[in-house]
Design a protein around this nucleic acid. Structure first.
Lengths: 148, 148
DNA sequence: TATATAAGTTAGACGTATCTAACATGTTTC
DNA sequence: GAAACATGTTAGATACGTCTAACTTATATA
């Protein structure tokens, strides 16, 4: 028998749903409306995949959707999207600050963002904030980064 | 049409495989051998799930496996496991350092670790290292964390 | 050593996200 | 306003990781 307690729950992975909500929110900010084709491009999936996820999200109450016409986030969907985006910004902000190029920062953040607890997120955010407020420290870190 | 390029690839999620390799490596370190039951406990999945993943990993060349007898990581499996564990340590080291409790740090890291580029990882590691080497700075960050 | 128990495996099913092919609807253009 | 085109949806299939139930093999014990 193992000496350690079980730490990890089986993964349920709601993260895909969050990806869609995030994309939908952002697209709406950028263009004022959201088309399935744009979601499809943004997330790199085919249109039918978008269709079925849209139905899924609508069923869950995150989205109002009128067949062949359009869609819009509900209050609840917007709320989730905003919190996902917040996480995204905190994390990608920190790793960008450390000199990771934007595209890498974006992609890494995509991978990370769904998995972090509030308390962890808050601390990472504070760390980023600290570095922003103390440019000398940030500079020292960045110099340290360059060494060897 | 969307104004931004496609940034995200469809997720293939090799992360589950990495979780198993990590668990197998750690269990072997702890006990000197690895049983399916321990993997099952460690990862919170049922034994048949372990069986099928074991076959999967063996087919991929990460594991030598003798039916009903036992298993052992191959060189290649060990190499992957070590790199996963390395990532794990870097990230959980950093977030522990920020005062996140151990269990949360562990779980968050599980979520994060599969998704981070080498270059990002290296920078996070360096950041952690910097904070370790400059305890005054770390102290300042932690105090900043407590404010408000 | 024979049997009971524990550990591991196979068979078969399910849910989720994805795909391609075919179809429906909406929009543009002559 | 009809035809062509673009966009969105449905149908049906696939891959993956998971599960339960039933079975097999190994180990412990009486």
């Amino acid at each position: 028998m193992s000496g350690l307690p079980r730490l990890v729950q089986p993964k349920r992975d709601i993260s895909r749903r969050e990806d869609y909500l995030e994309a939908i929110y952002n697209l709406n900010e950028e263009k004022g409306y959201v088309s399935a084709a744009d979601i499809s491009d943004r997330l790199g999936v085919k249109p039918p995949t978008v269709s079925s996820m849209v139905v899924n999200l609508a069923r869950k109450g995150y989205l109002d959707h009128e067949r062949y016409r359009g869609m819009r986030l509900t209050r609840s969907g917007e709320k989730v999207a905003k919190s996902v985006i917040k996480r995204h910004q905190v994390i990608s902000g920190l790793i960008s600050m450390l000199g990771v190029d934007d595209q890498t920062a974006y992609v890494d953040t995509e991978g990370i963002e769904h998995h972090v607890h509030q308390s962890t997120l808050r601390r990472l955010q504070k760390l980023a904030e600290y570095l922003r407020e103390n440019p000398d420290t940030l500079k020292a870190v960045l110099e340290f980064l360059e060494e060897k």
